[in-house]
Nucleic acid binder design. Structure first.
Length: 280
DNA sequence: TTGCAGGGGCATC
DNA sequence: GATGCCCCTGCA
């Protein structure tokens, strides 16, 4: 199936931008992405076409487009950011970047695993978690992420053996809470942003940063603005007068400044800072 | 080899 | 609000 976009997109840039951890590169411009019980092979044909093949559970075209971030109004968001004199200077390298849409539960577990870690390690931990405790996706060689129930059965010790360190306790307790309180994350889709932030930060091990990531990448809240060390550095480079603000305050600041384009702004800032582009 | 920093959060003061 | 601690991996 070919997915077309009206505005150029860059799959490679998007996938490697640190928003999704469940993927492998299998060829030039071709990636294998695991989401829930589906394996998506995505191959960028040209700047407006991505060819996809799927294994496991079916996803219709609309769902695939949403998953790959092709349905958000990027033209509109970029227009907002380009009017901002500060951030507009770093946009050109990242015009093809988009925000993908993950499963809320998988996104929550993934970003809990990301705390005080680094991308290679996060991907290693999550790969091992899937391989050792997930279940095989029919018609593929890949496992899906274990469910909350699975993780409760596995126990904290097993998570530690997988290498998740002190995050193991938090992930275990969060899954226990999900099961015991019969929480359906899907039912949170109708919550307001501030309600969602409050609910997410009630999970053990989930503070402002992780909650904002889950809102942005799992719930499609494009005005969320997660602030980690890289985004903080990026902001301070562009606006030195922000240097005394805490990450929590910067998060609010970003959402207030860029509104519905805040999520896109943070992703651009994150990439620019990590690539060393914003330092001279 | 060693030391350090890495997409935080929490308890304690 | 500031500080120490939680774990372990990649990297210099």
């Amino acid at each position: 199936m070919n997915l077309k976009t009206n505005i150029p997109v860059n799959l490679d840039l998007t996938i490697r931008s640190g928003q999704l951890f469940h993927w492998t590169k299998i060829a030039n411009n071709t990636f294998k992405i695991i989401i829930r019980r589906t394996v998506i092979k995505a191959n960028q044909i040209n700047e407006n076409i991505i060819k996809v093949e799927i294994k496991g559970e079916k996803l219709d075209e609309e769902k695939l487009r949403t998953t790959l971030g092709l349905n958000i109004e990027r033209q509109k968001l970029l227009t907002i950011l380009k009017k901002d004199k500060l951030i507009s200077q770093i946009i050109p390298s990242y015009e093809g970047l988009t925000i993908m849409k993950q499963d809320p539960y998988e996104c929550l577990i993934s970003f809990m695993a990301s705390a005080v870690s680094n991308i290679p390690r996060i991907m290693l931990n999550l790969n091992n978690l899937r391989d050792e405790t997930g279940t095989l996706i029919m018609g593929s060689n890949d496992n899906s992420l274990p469910s909350a129930k699975d993780i409760v059965c596995i126990g904290e010790e097993r998570l530690r053996n997988i290498g998740l360190g002190y995050r193991s306790k938090f992930i275990y307790l969060t899954c226990k809470k999900l099961i015991e309180e019969q929480i359906s994350l899907a039912s949170w889709l109708i919550k307001t942003d501030s309600e969602l932030l409050t609910l997410l930060t009630q999970f053990p091990g989930v503070g402002r940063k992780i909650a904002e990531c889950v809102m942005l990448f799992g719930f499609g809240r494009l005005s969320a603005f997660p602030v980690d060390i890289w985004v903080q550095r990026g902001l301070i480079y562009l606006m030195p007068n922000l240097k005394n603000m805490s990450p929590v305050d910067l998060s609010e600041w970003g959402t207030n400044r860029w509104g519905e384009a805040a999520g896109m702004a943070q992703q651009i800032l994150f990439c620019a800072a990590k690539n060393g582009e914003i330092f001279d």
